[in-house]
């Protein structure tokens, strides 16, 4: 167990940033703290780093209680959102900094720093000033600087938010590849759900200072426990449906004129909120969809190259659907019939 939080609370005066959370991070895994801005994820990360000390609760890193220890005394290092490269030092001096502070000789530090730069593919850049590097290169220097200390836990605070979209994908793949190659324990903070799903072994979703749900990316996407999660992890349409249990593992959900049998072991009979994934709605012409379908009318359409997006008025409310068939696009005002794939209909409350 590399990181362990037990009922950790963080207050700033009257405001509570983190309201009692517990979780663990296993060695060698990449765990993401995900949530909207202000949910307490960055505060949580900073409490792991020791940049904030908790108001209540207990934090252990690598089995050692570090609750009252400051950042310097903990075996963690961090990659900052804005990289925080020291502008008055060159690349090598930046990477050496932590090694020198840990008591290594100048030569040892330089040797280890060069190894670190090699790992991130910046072998020939050691004499550059940070201001002479591109955003992606600065990011790699920041990673190398944290990496060379061989910390028990490596922390990333929204590391990709200052990069453009193309570079962002490349960097997140590099970070994931590096983590798996070196077997690092990483805690990663982001507000971008796609980024979280792409890099993580496990995701901890936070909201308003609490943990909403934690699990693998697939768990969270396919079995969200709350309406918040269904909304936050990918897009979803909230709708009211009527539930009736068929057997211990299945409920039948009635939405307008159509009924869908959904795998669910807990929901009670009666009215409930369901979330419908837009990609699981098949938009058909009326008649082509068969009997068990939801009738509607196209309200808005958008052409996005790879797919179509529709807003559709139905008896269950306005549904947002994604349709890959750009070649037979529908126009606003056309009547349609919607078929719902059972795995895209999620009972989130009730």
């Amino acid at each position: 167990m590399s990181v362990e939080f037990q009922n950790v609370v963080k207050r700033y005066g009257a405001a509570t940033a983190v309201a009692g959370i517990s979780f663990t991070v296993e060695s060698g895994t990449l765990v993401t703290l995900l949530g909207p801005s202000g949910c307490g994820k960055t505060t949580t990360l900073r409490m792991i780093a020791g940049l904030e000390l908790p108001s209540e609760g207990r934090i252990a890193i690598a089995g050692r209680d570090v609750t009252t220890l400051g950042a310097t005394q903990r075996d963690v290092s961090m990659v900052f959102q804005c990289y925080a490269l020291f502008p008055h030092m060159n690349v090598l001096e930046n990477v050496c900094y932590g090694l020198r502070r840990s008591g290594q000789s100048r030569d040892d530090a330089a040797r280890h720093a060069r190894e670190g730069l090699l790992q991130v593919g910046l072998k020939d850049y050691e004499a550059r000033q940070p201001s002479e590097l591109s955003g992606g290169q600065q990011q790699r220097v920041a990673v190398a600087r944290a990496l060379v200390l061989k910390p028990s836990v490596l922390l990333f605070d929204e590391p990709l938010s200052n990069l453009d979209a193309r570079l962002r994908r490349q960097m997140r793949e590099e970070i994931r590849e590096l983590q798996q190659r070196l077997g690092l324990t990483v805690v990663y903070v982001t507000h971008d759900q796609q980024e979280a799903m792409a890099v993580s072994d496990r995701i901890i979703v936070m909201n308003a200072g609490r943990i909403e749900q934690q699990g693998s990316p697939r768990d969270l996407y396919e079995r969200p426990a709350t309406p918040f999660l269904a909304r936050f992890m990918g897009e979803s349409n909230p709708a009211r449906g009527l539930l009736r249990r068929l057997d211990p593992a299945t409920v039948r959900v009635r939405l307008g004129d159509c009924e869908i049998d959904v795998a669910n072991a807990t929901a009670a009979d009666g009215e409930a909120t369901v979330a419908i994934r837009p990609e699981s709605i098949a938009v058909e012409r009326p008649g082509a969809a068969g009997v068990n379908s939801l009738a509607g009318t196209i309200a808005k359409t958008s052409y996005l190259g790879t797919h179509m997006e529709y807003s559709i008025d139905t008896a269950a409310g306005v549904l947002f659907a994604i349709c890959p068939h750009v070649e037979r696009a529908l126009a606003a005002g056309e009547p349609v019939a919607l078929r719902l794939a059972p795995r895209g209909v999620l009972v989130v409350e009730g």
Partner: peptide, 8 residues
Amino acid sequence: EASLTLRG
């Protein structure tokens, strides 16, 4: 903060 997390 970077310096602090880097053992400074």
